[in-house]
Amino acid sequence: MNAIEKQLLSEKKNYQYITWIFVIVFVLFIWSLSAIQLNNMGTSGLTIAKNIITGILHPDLDLLFNITEKGVAYLLIETMAIAFLGTIIGAILAIPLAFLSASNVVPKPLAFVTKILLIGIRTIPAIIYGLMFIRVTGPGPFAGVLTMSLISIGMLSKLYADVIEDLDTSVLESMTSIGCTMFEKIRYGIIPQLLAMFLSIVIYRFDMNLRDASVLGLVGAGGIGAPLIFAMRSYRWEEVGSILIGLVLLILIVEFISNKIRNKLVRGY
């Protein structure tokens, strides 16, 4: 068999592979089509859809610019506070866990066990933690803070550990030659490297936490989610409109700022 024939055959095999993948994806697709059920959707669905759109286009401006505890502005600040405090607590507590799960810092078995624990923490969805913490603190933003902290610990430890695992250790050699102690090497050789990356990761997490915190209200853990669901359940679509506009604007602004800062931290401009 010469090289050309070989090439020809290998191409055929590749085609076969791709065809199979397509067949499987197609079968799965057909199977999942049963998720579409339109029988529940009466004419009322269309009316509601129309109402929602009118609601969003004509938001309750009073509510949007109201600065009392019921106003959108206050609720957004509360949501931010939940996300912020949760991120800060998580960012601090994640540091020791990250080192315990970095295989270039601690023995492999210990790193493995910590990693499994962290995967465990990450698998449980935020709203489940929310429901559990409500049993601890009662409903309200406090439960939200604890939820966000735990979620942040799970996510941040992993991202921190990735950074720790590809630390640049060459600088330590030169610090040895300068006559630095172990403590000095960590303080001036390792921490400056970690700090910029960790900060960038934490800011990203704050961005994500803000989104999560905005739905925690659905389970009663504070923030803008609860008023949103109440407004919907009682068909006050103008209110829904103003809450959604506030929320989307806030998240977009925070995302914009956080991208700016992270670029500066990671790339230096």
Binding site: S170, T176, S177, I178, Q193
Partner: peptide
């Protein structure tokens, strides 16, 4: 004493060995 001794000797490496993010 080793660390004290090294204070008087500078060393330069092929790969510069700097903290690049500061």
């Amino acid at each position: 004493e080793v660390r004290q001794f090294r204070r008087n000797i500078g060393m330069i490496f092929q790969s510069f060995n700097l903290v690049t993010r500061t």
